[in-house]
Simulated assay, not measured.
Amino acid sequence: MNKTNINDFQEIISGRRSIRNYDPSVKISKEEMTEILQKATLAPSSLNLQPWRFLVIDSSEGKATLAPLAKFNQTQVNTSAAVIAVFVDMNSVNHLEEIYDEAVRKGYMPPEVRDQQIPAIKGYINDAPTEKYKEMNLIDGGIVSMQLMLAARAHGYDTNPIGGFEKDQIAEAFGMDKDRYYPVMLISIGKAADAGYQSVRLPVEQITEWK
């Protein structure tokens, strides 16, 4: 797959379209998909907890399971190389020590900062209402999803973010703990079979104030 010039950021962002119809003959290797996901995970997250979790649905069996859960998005499910279900892990704090220890090992963080921040973060999360913690994670899930779509485009693929699916059923349908993993969105990915549609954006002057 020929990649878009990854240094041409203007082309990546201005050429992005929400593509619903893909060339079903084009597949994405596990190695390349891993590279795309790795670039997506360079996105920022609150407290660097990285709560995002990905389910790559690219087999015929997986798509058959997904199809009834995304009734209004059958074209994307059937023709895309894959549909990526983005979740947030409500137990992401369990990886706090792993993340911060690695930051210390690599010299990114002094040990004393780690030792101060870990108990403070745990205390904050333990005291935070569940809905507030979920909201924080969902913001991070949205950020990583956008970065995933841009990374896919830099690899020469197109995407479509999908919010209309059975969010209360998808985790359990794929053997995941629905109380722990909360769905953010589905993202179809593949080689576009058509050009998609350009869309209008409100002018910055209309949506921005300076004080």
Score class of each variant (00 low, 15 high):
residue 138 L to D: 07
residue 144 V to P: 08
residue 204 V to F: 09
residue 88 V to Q: 00
residue 195 A to H: 10
residue 65 T to V: 05
residue 211 K to S: 10
residue 2 N to F: 10
residue 37 L to Q: 14
residue 105 R to G: 00
residue 161 P to Y: 03
residue 177 D to W: 04
residue 31 E to V: 08
residue 117 Q to H: 04
residue 106 K to T: 02
residue 80 S to I: 08
residue 191 K to V: 13
residue 161 P to F: 04
residue 99 I to E: 10
residue 23 D to Q: 14
residue 201 R to T: 02
residue 191 K to Y: 13
residue 173 A to K: 10
residue 62 G to S: 01
residue 83 V to R: 12
residue 188 S to A: 15
residue 67 A to G: 01
residue 139 I to V: 13
residue 125 I to P: 01
residue 199 S to H: 11
residue 7 N to Q: 13
residue 211 K to Y: 14
residue 119 P to A: 05
residue 85 A to V: 08
residue 3 K to W: 09
residue 124 Y to N: 03
residue 173 A to D: 02
residue 68 P to N: 03
residue 193 A to H: 04
residue 193 A to D: 06
residue 197 Y to E: 13
residue 28 I to H: 01
residue 60 S to T: 04
residue 86 V to P: 06
residue 133 Y to A: 12
residue 73 N to I: 04
residue 193 A to F: 08
residue 167 K to T: 05
residue 88 V to A: 00
residue 26 V to F: 13
residue 209 E to D: 12
residue 204 V to W: 05
residue 22 Y to A: 07
residue 41 T to P: 03
residue 208 T to G: 10
residue 129 P to T: 04
residue 7 N to V: 09
residue 146 M to W: 06
residue 147 Q to P: 02
residue 194 D to Y: 03
residue 112 E to V: 00
residue 206 Q to N: 04
residue 86 V to N: 08
residue 37 L to R: 10
residue 120 A to S: 11
residue 65 T to F: 00
residue 51 P to V: 05
residue 3 K to V: 09
residue 4 T to H: 12
residue 188 S to L: 07
residue 60 S to E: 14
residue 82 A to W: 08
residue 153 R to L: 12
residue 150 L to R: 06
residue 145 S to L: 02
residue 63 K to H: 02
residue 34 T to H: 12
residue 3 K to A: 14
residue 181 Y to F: 15
residue 113 V to A: 15
residue 2 N to W: 07
residue 126 N to C: 01
residue 194 D to F: 04
residue 53 R to G: 00
residue 131 E to F: 02
residue 14 S to M: 13
residue 200 V to W: 11
residue 164 G to P: 06
residue 56 V to S: 07
residue 172 E to A: 15
residue 24 P to L: 09
residue 135 E to I: 03
residue 172 E to Y: 08
residue 116 Q to A: 14
residue 42 L to Q: 13
residue 140 D to H: 10
residue 110 P to A: 12
residue 83 V to G: 08
residue 200 V to S: 13
residue 97 E to S: 07
residue 119 P to G: 03
residue 103 A to L: 13
residue 187 I to L: 12
residue 105 R to A: 04
residue 162 I to C: 14
residue 65 T to H: 03
residue 162 I to P: 10
residue 47 L to Q: 06
residue 66 L to E: 02
residue 22 Y to H: 09
residue 101 D to N: 14
residue 181 Y to L: 15
residue 162 I to D: 12
residue 189 I to P: 06
residue 200 V to F: 11
residue 149 M to Q: 09
residue 174 F to P: 02
residue 208 T to L: 14
residue 77 V to H: 08
residue 192 A to F: 12
residue 168 D to Q: 13
residue 199 S to R: 11
residue 11 E to F: 05
residue 73 N to D: 06
residue 70 A to T: 01
residue 35 E to Y: 10
